[in-house]
Simulated scan of single mutants.
Amino acid sequence: MVEKSLAGPITEALRRVRRTSGVSLAFAGVVRDGSAVTLAHFVGRTSGVLDGLSVEAGHGLGGKVLRLNRPLAVDDYLKTPHITHRYNPAISAEGLRAVAAVPAIVDGRVVAVLYGGLHCENPVGNRLFDTLVGEARTLEQQVAVSRALIEADAGAGPDVDMLRDRMSQAYTRLRLLARTVDDAALADEIARITDVLLDEPALRVPVAVTLTPREQDVLALAALGYSNARIGGELGVSAETVKGYMKAAMGKLEAGTRLEAVVLARRAGLLPG
């Protein structure tokens, strides 16, 4: 399921929330059947009492966010008149006071709720709110991409998958070969052949991104499922150098994961498939 694949992205999002906003605890839950948020991801100071808590729609801060499909914040969770207080015992035991919650929405439905909490009654500032909203938007994109991949895989037969893999392998090998030949004319001809393996221009999704040849090489090998170490071995560079190229490519494509970078590069006509 897509939701299971979100554990890593959610944790990374929470780390960025805590690092950027300075909250003492960033946490999140995935929505089940649109009726409840199950808290299961935590970064920061926590007693563990919230882990596994199921927040029902309409109750507490997260439940109200789930019901209204919009961000909310309270400066004192235990005293605010704007939410129900079904979960006060857990919040009190955790020691939280000021809390903000933002939904991640895909296809009009909340798929997860991201929280930022303070162990004090300080007002929730714009910095925390803006950070949570930004991370929720990133998570929405990752969910949408993951679902599209699952749907595409479900609709593609084994022959299509095999052909895609062979095209990716041929493309990558030809790119690497072009870098080893001394004949400029031959290298140009090989480059033209690799272009044939890319999607037709009319089918490409316009993306204002320009990748360096090395960044394309790294993504092409990542598309084959290669690890950073193996990519480095193929390109004759270190795994750390590969990480640098991958990070740069992901930044240009605004991708949160390697998989998303490969998908976006394919959509832009920068990789075959």
Rank of each mutant, 00 (worst) to 15 (best):
A185R: 11
V145T: 15
F42L: 13
E189G: 02
M167Q: 10
Q141F: 15
Y171W: 12
A248E: 06
A248G: 09
L259I: 14
A223Y: 05
E3Q: 15
L139H: 01
L219G: 05
E140G: 10
E200N: 12
Q216W: 04
G236Y: 04
E151I: 06
L174Q: 06
S5D: 13
P201W: 07
K252P: 04
P89S: 03
T180W: 08
E135Q: 09
G225T: 12
E254I: 09
Q141V: 15
A249L: 02
A90S: 07
V205L: 13
L78F: 03
A268G: 02
A249N: 06
L139W: 07
L139Y: 07
A261L: 01
A148I: 02
L259R: 13
D165N: 14
G63S: 06
L186T: 15
G95V: 08
G62I: 03
G63V: 04
T80L: 05
Y245C: 03
L61D: 04
S35Y: 11
L50N: 02
R266S: 11
V43Y: 12
G269M: 02
G44I: 11
T131P: 10
V218Q: 10
L39G: 05
L259E: 13
Q216P: 02
G232L: 01
G34T: 04
V218L: 10
E140P: 08
L53G: 11
P9L: 05
L132R: 11
L270P: 07
S21V: 09
V237R: 06
L6I: 00
R166M: 13
Y245M: 05
L235Q: 05
E140W: 06
L39E: 01
P201A: 02
V237F: 02
D161A: 15
E189I: 01
V205W: 15
V49L: 08
E215N: 09
G117R: 01
R19L: 14
P158A: 03
S92D: 14
V196F: 11
V23R: 03
V209F: 01
L118F: 13
A40W: 05
S21G: 07
Y77I: 13
L203P: 00
Q216F: 00
D33M: 02
L128F: 13
G233H: 09
T11Y: 06
H59I: 06
Q141I: 14
E140N: 02
R70E: 07
T138Q: 15
A223E: 01
E121N: 05
L198S: 04
G108R: 00
G29M: 00
R166H: 12
P158Y: 04
G125H: 15
L211H: 01
N228G: 09
G244F: 07
